[in-house]
């Protein structure tokens, strides 16, 4: 079994959607093509614990918080204990908050390549995180921040120039599953 959140359709005839905790706890990911007959209740704490037995500590930590916030306190407590056990097995165990900051770092970094997100906000979040937690100031993270700053900086390229074409590539998008996308999303590449 996997565990997921079932979200009822907003209106009649709409689609029921399923969201699961992303690998390493970095947000939620929609699960597609769920067969309704394969879905069962998750009222039992031990059933859920069995379903997440092989998950990593970060996944368990994020899921524990979500259960805590949604009133599943017994499940949340068990998940949190399991997360700490997983963390304890790391060669150099980080604190719970350090793990949480890493989750946030990867989450906000991932947002920069999601469609329709506000990269200036992503940058603000990442800069704040790096400010608060100096362990995140690795050379590669710093390089990423500098590049993101240049991505969100006001564009100076003149339309029609090579520089403008390169700037437009920051909005290029290709469906990872190969489904056709809107022509505009690939126009910068073909130009």
């Amino acid at each position: 079994y996997d565990v997921a959140y079932r979200v009822p359709a907003a209106k009649s005839g709409g689609r029921v959607r399923y969201w699961e905790v992303e690998y390493r706890g970095v947000g939620l990911r929609e699960r597609e093509y769920v067969e309704p007959a394969a879905v069962e209740g998750a009222e039992s704490t031990s059933d859920v614990m069995r379903a997440v037995a092989f998950r990593d500590g970060d996944y368990l930590l994020a899921f524990a918080v979500q259960c805590q916030e949604r009133g599943r306190f017994d499940l949340a407590t068990r998940l949190y204990a399991q997360a700490r056990e997983e963390f304890g097995e790391d060669e150099k165990p980080l604190t719970v908050f350090e793990n949480l900051h890493l989750i946030a770092w990867v989450y906000w970094r991932k947002q920069t390549t999601e469609r329709g997100t506000d990269r200036a906000q992503d940058l603000r979040r990442l800069l704040e995180l790096a400010e608060e937690d100096p362990s995140l100031r690795t050379p590669s993270n710093d390089r990423f921040l500098r590049r993101l700053e240049r991505t969100v900086a006001p564009r100076k390229s003149k339309p029609g120039t090579v520089e403008a074409l390169i700037d437009e590539l920051t909005e290029y998008w290709d469906d990872p599953l190969g489904f056709p996308q809107k022509p505009a999303e690939r126009a910068s590449y073909w130009k």
């Binding site: 565990v3 997921a4 079932r6 879905v39 998750a42 379903a51 994020a62 900051h101």
Partner: peptide, 29 residues
């Protein structure tokens, strides 16, 4: 180690997402 309520507070402060309030936890076989 911090209590879970404090971890949850930090999780939200960091802008990490929660499932919709009306979502129901299920298992998928």
């Amino acid at each position: 180690h911090p209590v879970l309520a404090d971890v949850a507070k930090e999780y939200k402060r960091l802008g990490l997402p929660l499932p919709p309030a009306h979502a129901e936890l299920v298992r998928i076989n």
